[in-house]
Design a binder for these strands. Structure first.
Lengths: 116, 116
DNA sequence: TTGGATATATCCATCTTGGATAAGAGGAGG
DNA sequence: CCTCCTCTTATCCAAGATGGATATATCCAA
């Protein structure tokens, strides 16, 4: 799939979901996204270069993210910065809701303790 | 990976995680697990027979689940019932915690509303 | 006893990922 | 001004994971 049209169907590919989440509060460039993903997941998820750049290309084609100019203060012209589109944020919210539902099930079954 | 030894590393394969969650409160047989997964995820995740039976075989080899006798009242001898092992429950808890962390990040960034 | 639903199981094509590799620009130090 | 090392994007290929078709057999209802 991917690289087709507006394919905002849940479930998202794990890599796509984590990239969207990494971009949810500010723009990042490729490797910056990979670092952010690693932080967000406490090191559990690490995107290889293949997955990273392939995903970014497909996500751009699918309209989930778009390339933007570098933020003020960043001088390195090699970096390509990305930002969520409205569609990308919607897809992120949908997938995050799916995760939320799963966590709720886990709590109801005492796999996890109840929410704080 | 898989079918090796005690390979309880996070992240789990999505299929393995959902099967563990489906078995977290009672024993189920193969197709019963698939139905339970579909319920738990509001229809978002549907395991094909290939993924289902391959996963169950590997998970048994890895010691995450074990086959148990049918519950009282179930007469169909074709069904093979499975139950979480201690190791399987630990793996489930670890992976569920990873999901929980991701949901927390999504909430902090207003992708999802705060917990009720 | 006949037919459709249920159940386990395997095989193969496709999808997805990770790692090796490449190529070029940036930056520090001599 | 060079040289070396890092950072960055990018592609390719092998390995990993999934889904669906297919096979085989049993259960159950008509």
């Amino acid at each position: 799939m991917s690289s087709k049209n507006i394919d905002t169907a849940v479930p998202l590919k794990p890599a796509v979901f984590h990239i969207l989440l990494a971009l949810s509060d500010e723009d990042h460039h490729g490797l910056g996204i990979a670092d952010e993903v690693e932080e967000n997941t406490a090191g559990a998820i690490r995107l290889g270069p293949g997955t990273l750049y392939r995903s970014l290309k497909e996500m751009t084609q699918d309209g989930l993210v778009r390339e933007v100019s570098a933020p003020a203060g960043d001088e390195d012209p090699r970096r390509k910065f990305y930002r969520l589109t409205r569609s990308g944020r919607a897809a992120l919210r949908a997938e995050a809701s799916r995760y939320e539902r799963i966590v709720d099930v886990a709590r109801k079954r005492a796999v996890l303790r109840e929410a704080r």
